[in-house]
Structures are given as structure tokens and as C-alpha cells.
């Protein structure tokens, strides 16, 4: 990680009228990482991505991409925007060649790369079809190909799985992993957090233009202690209504009843109490999911803001 980062943002600010879309954002994305870029709606993800793509420019701060200015690095970046688009009347092959040439590929390379990727993405014999003739999922795959055709060093994927059936989602997942294994840096933006959790090696979470989490998955797991116990009593037995150290319980989940611990309680101590009070088939301490961490962090910030605005109403 000592090498120069693939993306480096320093104190980047971007404002649209009165809206502060990105606020003093600094971050590094290292070569070969597969990073989940997360945040609630309106958090500033798209604005940040657009600045990295040099589609728009920051009001303040510096952006360095692939060791150069964002504009100079354009041809080394692949981008799949959230809002997908194709020329409806254009033939698939022609569209891919066009995008390839715009990304600096010689025509012959663009043709052979398009052929390879259409086969790899299980889209044979569609190159002569007009884009409007394809199904939504097929269009999605064509757009993905357009973003990787020129073998970019940095790939930015905004909601790449939306609209794909499980088979195609798995195919895409496999391709993304392969590209990452080849040393390409991948930024993956999504609202489907379990996908990010499965795919990414680190997470960057922003909210209201500010970074609130930037860590590896391992680091996040260590930072956020497990606070949920999943327990499945043996048949014919029930857990006591009140267990010391348990704040509340959820409905029966996949692995039994979920017991959420009180603050500062030792999970081992609570687990011992449970086993002493009721025979169990299984009991386990569950790590918080990325969804839970996301909700917790974003909700905490909402409460803080709310407290700043109306301090008297926090406890109510």
C-alpha cells in the first residue's frame, strides 16, 4: 500500500447553489483494491464519481487519478453510470466500437475486444442487432462491456447488478472478480449492501458529502463489535421472557431468535446465562452486517443533526 494511490482526493468541495454536495472529502483508493463506495441517497456519491471522471470539477481541493489529472486519465478509466443509456437505433457492435474508439482504442482492437466480451458475457450474435431490440438485462450487459472494453486500470461501477437475474448477476460477479484479480482497481457503488459485503475488500461510506467510514472489511468487523446473539432452543423449550443483558429480541430469524445486547454488556456472559436458563440446539454471536453498520452510522448522524437543530426534542 506504499505505492501512489490510484485515486487521491484532498479536501475536495463541490457546491451546487446552496447545496453542499461534497464537503472537505479526502480519500485514497489503492491500486488493485475493490472498494465499496456507499452512502444514502443524496450523499454525494454520484458527484464524487463525476469529479473523479472529470465530468464536473471541484470548487476546492485536488483530485489525482492514476498519477495524473482526472482529465488526462479519462481513457484509463471505465465507467458504468447508474443511469444506463444506449443509442436505441445503433447496432450493438457499432456502439461498442464507437465507445472503444472514444476511449482511444484503434478500430481493429475495439472490434476484436467487443467480439471477445460479447462472447464472454454470453451475448453471442447480438452485434448486428439494434440496441432497442435487446432485453433490459442484455442492454445492461452491453453497457458493462462498454465500460471495460478498453481494459481500464480503474473501473467505476454504479449499481452494476440492478436489473440482472441471479444467473447474470453471478456471471457479472465472476467477471468483476477476474478483473480485480488482474490488478485493476474497482470502485463499486451500490445500495445493495450485502453485495458490497461479499465482493469488496474495503468500504468507503459517505453521508451528506462527508466521509464517515473508510476501512477494510476486516477493520470494520473488528471496529464494530458483535452485538447480536442468535439462539435456537431445543424443541419443546422456550427462552425466558427476560434475560439479563438483552435489550430486546427480534422475530425468529434464519438461525433462530435474535437477541440484541445492551450497551457495554459482555456477549460471553450473556451467552452463558442463556445456556444456563434453557437447553439450546445452537447459539452463536453474530457480527453486524454492513446493512446494520450503515443504518447505525447514518442514523447516528441524523440524530446528531436533529440534536443540533432541536436539542430539547432528542429524548422524546
Amino acid at each position: 500500500m506504499g505505492a501512489e494511490p490510484t485515486i487521491s482526493l484532498r479536501n475536495v468541495n463541490k457546491q451546487f447553489g446552496d447545496v453542499h454536495a461534497v464537503r472537505d472529502l479526502s480519500l485514497d483508493v489503492h491500486k488493485g483494491s475493490l472498494i465499496g463506495f456507499l452512502g444514502p441517497n443524496g450523499a454525494g456519491k454520484s458527484t464524487t464519481i463525476r469529479m473523479v471522471m472529470s465530468i464536473i470539477y471541484p470548487d476546492k481541493g485536488t483530485i489525482n487519478v492514476l498519477g495524473d489529472s482526472a482529465l488526462a486519465a479519462k481513457d484509463r478509466i471505465g465507467y458504468l453510470p447508474e443511469e444506463r443509456g444506449l443509442y436505441r437505433k445503433m447496432r450493438v457492435g457499432e456502439y461498442l466500437h464507437y465507445i472503444g474508439k472514444l476511449k482511444g482504442m484503434p478500430r481493429s482492437n475495439a472490434i476484436s475486444a467487443a467480439k471477445y466480451w460479447l462472447d464472454r458475457m454470453e451475448l453471442p450474435k447480438v452485434d448486428r442487432k439494434r440496441c432497442e431490440e435487446l432485453s433490459k438485462g442484455m442492454q445492461q450487459k452491453v453497457q458493462f462491456i462498454a465500460s471495460i472494453l478498453h481494459e481500464p486500470d480503474l473501473l467505476i461501477l454504479d449499481e452494476p447488478f440492478s436489473g440482472l437475474d441471479p444467473v447474470n448477476a453471478e456471471l457479472l460477479n465472476e467477471v468483476i472478480r477476474d478483473l480485480n484479480a488482474q490488478g485493476r482497481t474497482i470502485i463499486f457503488s451500490t445500495h445493495v449492501l450485502h453485495q458490497a459485503e461479499q465482493l469488496c475488500d474495503s468500504i468507503l461510506l459517505i453521508d451528506r458529502g462527508e466521509k464517515i467510514l473508510d476501512d477494510t472489511m476486516e477493520g470494520i468487523r473488528q471496529t464494530f463489535d458483535p452485538r447480536t446473539i442468535e439462539v435456537e432452543p431445543t424443541i419443546g423449550h422456550e427462552l425466558p421472557v427476560a434475560i439479563e443483558g438483552v435489550a430486546h429480541r427480534s422475530n425468529q430469524g434464519e438461525h433462530g431468535i435474535e437477541l440484541h445486547l445492551e450497551e457495554a454488556r459482555d456477549p460471553q456472559d450473556v451467552m452463558r446465562r442463556i445456556m444456563a436458563s434453557c437447553p439450546v440446539r445452537s447459539i452463536r454471536l453474530r457480527r453486524p452486517t454492513l446493512d446494520e453498520i450503515f443504518v447505525m452510522l447514518v442514523r447516528d448522524r441524523m440524530h446528531e443533526t436533529h440534536a443540533d437543530l432541536v436539542p430539547g426534542e432528542v429524548d422524546s
Partner: peptide, 18 residues
Amino acid sequence: IEEKSNKVMEVLLSAVSP
């Protein structure tokens, strides 16, 4: 208008400047 409404604009802008 077609490029904008077809949402192909952002793909183009990732390759060329406005």
C-alpha cells in the same frame, strides 16, 4: 435531447469532455 433522454450522455462524458 435523445442522448440526454436515453441516458447515454454520461457514458459519452466519461470518454470525452463536454
